[in-house]
Simulated assay, not measured.
Amino acid sequence: MKFPSFLFSFLVFFILASGEQQAWAKNGWPKCPENGRNVEIFMETSMGDLKYHKGLNSRQLSKMRGNVGRRLGPMWIPTGLTVADENYHLKTGTKIYQLGRGRFCAVLESAQLFIGYRNIDVYISNKYRQGSCEHDSILNHENVHVQIFRDTLYKHAGGIERAIRKKAPRIGPVYLRSANAAANKLQRLLDAQIRPLFKRMSSDISRKNARIDTKANYRREQAMCQDW
């Protein structure tokens, strides 16, 4: 289970283009003094601060998990839960040039991307004593979820970083009559290139987690212990 957070922000720097630098663009506007090819890229990933919680009962876990348990049937009682706060945060620095007559061009100066987890929380029902067969079975199951979150992030992070390094220098320049609109457009153009890769990672995580949250797998795990 995960709670996604999608954030983006931008910084804008204004520069007045000099007459010597200006050339005529195809649309009749002065050409942007920069082509936007020199973009500083910063990428951060986080595997999450892992914490274990043992103070909730099965009813509370069921409420936290929401509708997920319904597909397993009315007899299903949750005994454990793993929650990862999945994050995507893109921040761009933009350089704006005034081209005169209320015209602006914008290029990316920097792009900072964070993907990963701030926290991963594992909950185990307080019905089961620590060290018991049932407790250890739940713990092992939830630790598989933790490994799925972390392994899948590791698997996708390299490709996402390569993509932003390749695509960011190809964004812009953007020509508009509003400096803020130009900066926003650059942000949206880069976000449109990178966010689908993050969503692909998120879908991969969901598929892998669903494979172990099945009736058949729960039956196999529960068959190893007697006091459920």
Rank of each mutant, 00 (worst) to 15 (best):
P33F: 09
L61S: 05
W228P: 03
M75L: 12
L81H: 04
R165F: 04
F10H: 14
R207A: 15
I138H: 01
A157S: 12
Q130G: 14
A210Q: 13
Y97G: 04
L153D: 03
G93I: 06
Y128R: 06
V12K: 14
G73T: 05
K26I: 08
H156N: 08
H53V: 09
F114G: 03
N87Y: 00
D49Y: 01
C105Q: 04
L186S: 03
N184Q: 15
V83F: 02
I194W: 06
N209M: 12
G36A: 02
Y117W: 00
H145Y: 01
P169N: 08
S46R: 06
P169Y: 02
A106K: 01
I120L: 03
M1W: 04
D85F: 03
F14K: 14
D49P: 03
R71K: 15
D151T: 05
R165H: 10
I194L: 14
L190M: 12
T94P: 00
R188V: 10
R101S: 12
A216W: 02
E40L: 14
T92R: 07
F114T: 07
D121F: 02
E44S: 13
R70D: 12
P33C: 08
A216H: 09
S137G: 15
R103Q: 11
R103T: 04
I194F: 08
N180M: 10
I164W: 02
F13C: 07
P4V: 06
S110V: 02
E142Y: 01
A192W: 06
Q187F: 05
D121H: 11
V146A: 02
Y117Q: 08
V107P: 01
D191R: 15
Y175H: 09
W24K: 15
Q187M: 15
K167E: 14
Y218E: 11
S178V: 11
D191F: 12
I212P: 08
S202N: 15
A157P: 04
R70T: 09
V12C: 02
R162Y: 01
K155V: 01
R165D: 03
S9K: 10
L176V: 03
T79W: 03
N87F: 00
G55A: 13
R71Q: 11
N140Y: 11
E44P: 01
L61N: 05
V122L: 05
K155G: 00
Y123K: 02
